[in-house]
Nucleic acid binder design. Sequence first.
RNA 1: AGUCUCGUAGCUCAGUUGGUUAGAGCGCUACACUGAUAAUGUAGAGGUCGGCAGUUCAAAUCUGCCCGAGACUACCA
Length: 1129
Amino acid sequence: MAQPRYREFKQLHLPDIDQEILAVWQAEDTFKQSIEQRDPEHSYVFYEGPPSANGKPGIHHVMARTVKDLFCRYNTLKGYRVERKGGWDTHGLPVELQVEKELGITKEDIGKSISVDEYNSACRSTVLRYKDLWDDITRKMGYWVDLDNPYITFDNNYIESCWHLLRTLYDKRTNAGDSYLYKGFTIQPFSPAAGTGLSSHELNLPGCYQEVTDISVIAMFKVKQNEASSFLFDNDREDVRILAWTTTPWTLPSNVALTVGAKINYIKVRTVSPYTGNPVSLLLAQDRLSAYFDPAGEGQSLDTYTPADKILPYSVDQTIVTGAQLDGLFYHQLMPIVTSPDLERQGFRVITGDFVTTEDGTGVVHTAPYFGADDFRACVANDIPFIGIPDEHGVIQPLVDRQGKFVPEMGAFAGMYVKQEYYPDDVRNQKEFRPTDLLISLALKEEDKAFKIEKYKHNYPHCWRTDKPVLYYPLDSWFIRASAAKERMAELNRTINWKPAHTGTGRFGVWLENLQDWNLSRTRYWGIPLPIWRTKDGDLEKCIGSLAELQTEIDMANKVLKKDQLLPKDLHRPYIDEVVLVSHDGRPMTRELDLIDVWFDSGSMPYAQWHYPFENENKFQQNFPADFIAEGVDQTRGWFYTLHAIATMCFDQVAYKNVVSNGLVLDREGNKMSKSKGNVVDPFITISTYGADATRWYMMANADPWENLKFDEGGLLEVRNKYFGTLFNTYNFFALYANLDGFVMSDKDQVPLTDRPELDRWILSKLYSLVHDVRSHYDEYEPTKALRALENFVDRNLSNWFVRLARRRFWRGEMNEDKLSAYQTLFECLEVVAQLSAPAAPFFSDWLYRNLMAGREQADNNMPKSIHLTDLIQEDANRIDLDLETRMEYAQHICSLALSIRKREKLRVRLPLQKILLPVLDSAFIRQVDGAKDLILSEINVKEIEYITDADGLLIKQAKANFKTLGKRLGKNMKAAAEQIATFSNDQINSLESKGRVSISIDGEQYDITSEDLVITTEDLPGWKTASEEGLTVALDVNLTEELLAEGIARDLVNRIQNQRKEQNFEVTDRIQITIQDQRDIRAAVESFGSHIQQETLADKLTLVVSLSNGVEVELSDELTAQIRVERI
RNA sequence: AGUCUCGUAGCUCAGUUGGUUAGAGCGCUACACUGAUAAUGUAGAGGUCGGCAGUUCAAAUCUGCCCGAGACUACCA
């Protein structure tokens, strides 16, 4: 035997392959080679969305990174240089929160018990805490990304590039002359728990809007009786009040106005106050009456009501007043805790607004300007003063501070958190704990100002990191005027290839159409400082776009202000805050204390990762825009947006040409994975159990990556067994015999394609069809389709047809051309499949490739060491023979039908049969089946094929209507025609076939039917055992002769003897001698087929004896058992 | 509340421009096959294609409404 070239294995164990290949990649520096061997001018640009390394990697990261890795590897194979610069997202709230938790401090402590300096260095040391874990999962999952030279967002160079972009925006003007970077005062979502405002896209992150149950109250606002309001009053003593609903009772002390709809009709209801029974007249929208008053109470006496009664007595005043008539009426302040002379004069007034509806509530909106964007605008428009406490500059501050607590001036409510979620859990869990909303509602009830208090379920936005509700709160902020660029963004977006498309047109496209300005400001400490300096009164400002500029400005300031400031070594707070610049008129300028939104950091990575424009101009040009990016669909309004926005506004270009947004990874039941539910999948365990490739393959092949994936271990098992197991077995089979035969793959000694057997040419044709399919699927960013095509090929074509039918060619006899062809064909299939699988399954593919390479001729062996260094196989239409593929389909079909007849007739496959009969309707069929004749005969163990044609007169034909062609012509007569056609006799069909047409009549209409309009099949051959499917019929000759029976027994004997060899652990090449107990049937078989038996089983001697003592009893068929002894010689 | 995506066998998914009897894999049952076997073949059970209308000769496919899931949007008082 020749020296074994190909490694053989007992069992497939993917995690071992991972280990082996990882070590090889490391030793050979394969990743680096795969990049450097390609031309920098021929690049495929990929951007890595930076993960935050202060959290541990999860299984969903494996999903997202598999998508990234797959297309990068694929394009590497295609010959592109695919650099993948890694990156780390290091700024932002999550880092701050973690530091605060670990140090046991809150935002209030910063600058007091801990300096900003200390705080920030704690952040800096935390941000890469889990970097090792991330590097580890990156390595283990086979994600190739350059982690040695990553971009890091806290780096001074990175920050400088961001400043440059901000300066660009600052200088850019809209047609109206407005800057793209501006400061404004607005009511914004604010997270007291995080101590910062939130941008609109932070509020649009998944899970922000949560259904919560709040306490809602309908308050009764007492109308001041005066000349203007007199039309509402029946008499001087009437108590007229306006009903207004709120789900945020904590804003009621800040109420300054009631907003009504000018065109909405309001009515007055005479009734009683539900909690006290005092008579009262209530104003509310006519449409809302039925929501609060049960008709059963109409006209009932008010005097007999007690608060225990369920039904309120009432009567409706017939006068209808419009909102416009109510406009300008004054009312008594509902909760007179804080007020002012201005307010007493101008506030507590009814105003009108177009946002009022009568869909819920009372048609009257309680208005508190500091806590609602609409409220704010409405108050400004109507000159309603703000309510609050003036600060040292005389600016009115809201009654709720930045921690979410009532200010000290709030009397009994001072110091209370307005949302119960802001209290620490131990406080909330106390028995006597009452949320502030409830306390306020109860106070109103006490004072007979509450009409109704009830729980109300609604969606309310929550902070994406602290998971606590946000407040709408007045804040000064810097904005990017994104709304000015929204048309251009939409336009450029249409040139981007989105996978799936609807994310681009729908979710992203619609979002762009309604784009709001980007709130850039963050009131935090650890992040990129806003590079804007202002004079104290704010009328002069400078935006710094580079360190050189900052240095110049510092020098100037030093000169004018007599200082000796240096350029800070670290651009973060607090150092940058200490820099004082000078205005042209000699006044000191200090930095605006805001940081910028971290999403700006990540959206700047195309430029900042290269420190553009200060360095690497060329590198940047080569790498912008990206050909491809991929992240989770949750990044649509995150990274996908910020990349697009910055590229559009600063460069008037797209930032990426193709984008794949993958779905969520859910647990097996379809629930979101979360630590609290305990259903989180640990990617390290998954990969070490099933192997990285099975994990990756499962995630890509199970469903399109943009669908949500219900992660199920059963699926991993299936992938491992089905795809990798089958491929492994196929390789192992090849290796076993290739080693025995000393087969060496050589490009020189290839059997010409035309000399190869039908089966070989067929699988090669299938292989090249596969190459075409897989390449186009990958090119279209359809990984699932590509992988499924591979699965189908390996399982159905390669393993279960080619190998099964070709098996004997590998083990029989000496090397000859037929055998060589079989080896070369199988080798080529394995090699190509390995390559096409490599983007998705990098470990196994490389392992397989390397095992195969061991058997390549030395002279030919200038092949790359790793499959990831090879060039992707080219499509070759010349190697595809569709006619041959069709032929084989017939063969497979015929075999399947023949086997099903055997099964039905209980004729085991080892029992040879004389012939099958195939009814034939066209001569091409005979030619095609004949091409695969030998395969069919051996597969179903039949001696010959007989074709039955028309001429034999045996065919019974059946016609069916071809709905597709006839339907259009016949319209509603289709059904009747189909019935008529189904009854066509043999003669009618034959006459149609000879004449080419026949006419039928339906409802007096004549229709010409051509042979195209019919599907003709043969169903039955009288007197034969038949099976048919899809128009193909097979009949089996089930007559048995002595000869056939004997051959069947001979085959059974071979099988039983082979089993014995296996059971006794003989080597495949061991010679044996066989002794069988003599019986009539067996003797017949041995007499006719003895040499065949010996040949098959490598037996030098075959003896029949009368009695056999130490043999094994085997069952040959239901009626026949025999004693057999198998011995090694 | 609105927008988008989705709903096909117990599970995971295919299903081309509407066209004859809706498929595959896993799982289940039975029987085979196996000198590559964590495989494979044959057969069977398992479907009102979420529901109801409509368009059409013909609907899993097109339209409308409803139900359910998910994502997104929203100042919702």
